[in-house]
Amino acid sequence: MVEKDKKNENLAYDTTINILKRLPVKSLVRFKCVSKDWLNLSNSPYFISLHLHHSTLLLLFQRIPLSNNQSQSSSSSSCLIGQDLKVHNPEFFDFALTDKIIGSCDGLLCVKHTNNHMLSILNPATREIRQVPEILHDIKSFSYFGFGFSPIVNDYKVVRISVSDEDRILDLDNIRVSLDLDDIRVTRAEVYSLTSGSWREIDATILQTLYLMSNSVTANGVMFWQAFATDPDAEILVSFDIGREMFTLLEGPPLLPSTSVTHSHTNVLAVHNNKLAMFHCFINGGIESCSIELWVLEDERWVKQYSVGPSARMLYPICIWRDEIVFREELYMRIGEYSAVETVLSLFNPYSDELKTLPAQKDRYYYVSFNYVESIVPVANVHHEQ
């Protein structure tokens, strides 16, 4: 009889977990008050990881002003889109236009507050926030950031790579304009650990002859940036192993030689099935059509996943979401004597050739995007199991 009661008790416990792991974060936060057992369960590393792996993957956009003089908007700077392609819970992302999301990982966001040059790590779903302490060196100098998680050391980390001169650089997210390349060489790097709650300087000697030229992406415990040395066409990728805290360099995928048909190209870093990927984007003829290739790094070897196009529209890939490509299209218009740019966002399935318009605003902003999940991962201490 005792053995039967124990089996029933275990069955009830397993059923409870099976139900709770599928609930939205808002409900789980409320249910912490039900009992001490439910409170302990929701704070356990096992359940946090279980709930994370059952969370729905969402798409987060942030609107970036195209100029520093652009007037502030009364609407939120962010837009969260669900798998039904509708806007979800925008109140969770009420950031100012001066705040910039650096990275998204397991429901945590790393945000740079431009007004005071400080960093925060927050969980928007639970409304927890941690103010990152001041960096070892002056944070006002121009920097590239990365944010990610390493299952090897069970820790979330922020990386800051500094360049030598902020004043001579125009920062427009992926666009860097400088009067002299010698002014934007990497000078130092620091890493912040969520577990230790502190910064420390790390060896960046391997980067000191490089010029970084992109925001970062994180895949499988490694951060990546695009860079070049003296030849802008000789592209290099910088990788940072979050667990080992070590920088290495690798070559990007092979480029097709330029022809009379294809006169320019751009490269965009992405993540495909938790592996590093890169889009090669080619402009064909004038500015009337484009085509893209997606390359994925498989076991230290670049493999071409697919090609798309040529397309009669100028579509710029931003990221990959649920195996589909998020595109940005810039529409140029004239209003009286002035020209204006409006941004249209779309989602493209490379296997069915279906193109869908996303419900973000058509406006005069630059958009960056992130994959995002709601989670109960804490920001005060790391309680995470993979």
Rank of each mutant, 00 (worst) to 15 (best):
T187E: 13
T187I: 15
T187V: 15
T187F: 08
R188C: 12
R188D: 13
R188M: 10
R188W: 03
R188K: 14
A189T: 13
A189I: 08
A189M: 13
A189Y: 06
A189D: 03
A189R: 03
E190H: 07
E190Y: 04
E190K: 05
E190P: 00
E190S: 14
V191E: 06
V191R: 00
V191P: 00
V191G: 04
Y192Q: 02
Y192S: 01
Y192R: 08
Y192L: 05
Y192P: 02
Y192W: 11
Y192E: 01
S193C: 06
L194Y: 06
L194N: 05
L194V: 15
L194A: 10
L194I: 14
L194K: 01
T195I: 10
T195V: 14
T195G: 10
T195R: 13
S196M: 13
S196G: 05
S196V: 09
S196R: 15
S196F: 14
G197C: 07
G197H: 02
G197W: 09
G197T: 09
G197F: 11
G197E: 07
S198M: 05
S198L: 08
S198A: 14
S198P: 07
W199V: 00
W199K: 02
W199G: 02
W199I: 00
R200M: 05
R200L: 08
R200D: 05
E201T: 11
E201H: 00
E201Q: 09
I202G: 02
I202T: 09
I202L: 10
I202K: 09
I202V: 15
I202R: 07
D203W: 09
D203I: 08
D203Q: 11
D203T: 11
A204N: 07
A204W: 01
A204M: 03
A204D: 08
T205G: 13
T205H: 07
T205D: 14
I206K: 04
I206P: 03
I206H: 02
L207S: 03
L207N: 04
L207D: 07
L207Y: 03
L207A: 01
L207G: 06
L207T: 09
Q208I: 14
Q208Y: 07
Q208C: 15
T209R: 06
T209E: 15
L210T: 04
L210V: 05
L210W: 01
Y211N: 06
L212G: 03
L212C: 13
L212T: 02
L212P: 00
L212W: 00
M213L: 08
M213H: 06
M213Y: 09
M213E: 14
M213W: 11
S214P: 14
S214F: 09
S214C: 10
S214R: 10
S214T: 14
S214Q: 10
S214A: 12
N215E: 12
N215G: 13
N215V: 11
S216F: 11
S216Q: 09
S216D: 10
S216G: 11
V217G: 02
V217S: 03
V217P: 05
V217T: 04
T218M: 08
T218V: 15
